[in-house]
Write a protein that binds this DNA or RNA. Structure first.
Length: 440
DNA sequence: AATTTCTACAACCGCCGACGG
DNA sequence: CCCGTCGGCGGTTGTAGAAAT
């Protein structure tokens, strides 16, 4: 234990980095790569420890970092992911290309927690504050642990998922004070309120070549149908502009607790309570759905004057303009996910994968999702029914999944929308929790 | 204008797991 | 198997600038 060895060395500078130091580090890494971080400061002529250099590079100097304020979409995504992942900042950051875990952590601590509290939501448990207080009264031990770490709170959410008591209605749990922040004026000038009936707006990922583009060979055998799923963002809860959920017939699975997540290609276990454990070792590649019409900013690329992340990378196949439901299709694997290293916290696996399985692929540092797209994701027909029933009892699995091997698509009817938003949200969170491999 | 408080952000610290000798 | 090193993560602290008094 104790301090890192490099920190024992004398004459090491601490504190803020000067522009000269930045330049030295930037020049060195640009020319040589970082290699062994412990040797970087010496070779770069810096009076810093390797850790400090690494941190400076990752959090500030990296060229692929996104600058500027977080968009509303990013904030909402962080909140959603935090509800599932807890304080696993690195995994949350992996979903936000160009953002660092430190940045997200700071945003959460300085801003998002406050916002949630203002909305009457406990930032640790993502439940109404009143309910959290009740929980404290009833389960003082658990409540204390929840206060300590949000992961514990999420585990509690999962306990609820496993032992479904009448779940707190999302409408209750996440009803926002419309007077404070719930109004969302989109770029078309239409004022959206989350109290409106949520129109599920889905964004489909055609993982396997709807556009017929070539795809890298998967490193393991996996049917195309195993590789598709999607998130849907609905106008609920935290804000009108984004919602993250997992389609009832799909799941995305990985084990954030594992540093060496293993792919499994077979999924025959039933989605009983044991599913929560068994699923943690599986990995599923989700696609992403984003709102489009009620939040046209996603298509326009700007939200409230802030450049919208990724929007430009979505293919412009926005199929709808009627204001009720729409979808955009991601045409190939070469866009959103790959371009932005969209990663569901699978970096460890990826890292090992990069070292061993994909030595000939590009040397990009940001392989993450892009690399994962080259690996199979457990998804689709083999598991969808198993997953959907126990976890989505309130949602009829009425979305059919069709694949012909060359293209894959979801055919989704609107029945799901008939469900109360609260049910959808609660189930969404449960599914997300499961999907993210939250083990109990 | 001076001082205090607040806020956002950068950086540090301690710990952990992986890895190699 | 042990030990040291390293990279990485999350919690915490430090600090500069903004806002409030």
């Amino acid at each position: 234990m104790g301090r890192h060895s490099c920190c024992y060395k004398q004459k090491l500078r601490k504190g803020l980095w000067s522009p000269e130091e930045d330049e030295k580090l930037l020049n060195y890494i640009t020319k040589h790569g970082h290699g062994c971080w412990s040797s970087v400061p010496k070779l770069a002529g810096l009076q810093r420890c390797g850790k400090s250099c690494r941190l400076r590079w990752i959090n500030y100097l990296r060229p692929d970092l996104k600058r500027g304020a977080f968009s509303q979409q990013e904030e909402n995504l962080i909140i959603e992911l935090h509800a599932v992942l807890g304080n696993r900042w690195s995994q949350i950051a992996a979903q936000l290309p160009g953002r660092t875990d430190n940045e997200i952590k700071n945003l959460w601590n300085s801003c998002l927690k406050k916002k949630l509290r203002q909305r009457g939501i406990d930032p640790n448990t993502h439940k109404p504050l009143s309910e959290v207080e009740n929980d404290k009264d009833m389960l003082p031990t658990t409540a204390k642990s929840n206060e300590k770490t949000s992961i514990g709170s999420n585990e509690q959410n999962l306990i609820e998922a496993k032992n479904p008591k009448p779940p707190p209605m999302a409408a209750e749990r996440y009803t926002l004070d419309a007077s404070s922040s719930s109004k969302f004026e989109n770029s078309s000038g239409r004022n959206n309120s989350f109290t409106t009936t949520p129109a599920t707006q889905e964004f489909f990922l055609d993982r396997f070549g709807g556009s017929g583009t070539s795809h890298e060979t998967s490193s393991t055998s996996c049917r195309p149908s195993d590789l598709v799923g999607y998130f849907s963002f609905q106008h609920l809860n935290y804000g009108p502009d984004i919602r993250l959920s997992v389609h009832p017939n799909t799941s995305l699975c990985f084990n954030p607790n594992s540093r060496s997540s293993e792919m499994i290609s077979d999924y025959n276990s039933s989605m009983t309570s044991s599913m929560l454990h068994s699923i943690s070792s599986s990995i599923v590649k989700p696609s992403v759905s984003l709102p489009s019409d009620n939040n046209p900013s996603l298509g326009s690329g700007d939200v409230n004057g802030i450049h919208n992340w990724e929007s430009s990378t979505f293919s412009n196949n926005c199929s709808n303009s009627n204001g009720s439901s729409s979808s955009m299709e991601l045409q190939s694997s070469s866009n959103f996910f790959e371009n932005h290293a969209f990663s569901w916290g699978l970096t460890d696996h990826i890292k090992s994968d990069k070292d061993h399985a994909h030595p000939l692929e590009g040397d990009t540092e940001d392989i993450k999702w892009s690399e994962y797209l080259h690996t199979p994701f457990l998804m689709g027909s083999t598991i969808q029914n198993q997953i959907s029933q126990p976890m989505c009892s309130g949602i009829k699995p009425e979305t059919s999944f069709m694949t012909d091997g060359s293209s894959t698509s979801w055919h989704h009817n609107q029945h799901q929308q008939a469900l109360p938003a609260s049910d959808i949200y609660t189930k969404d969170l449960q599914r997300l929790a499961v999907a993210f491999g939250q083990t109990l």
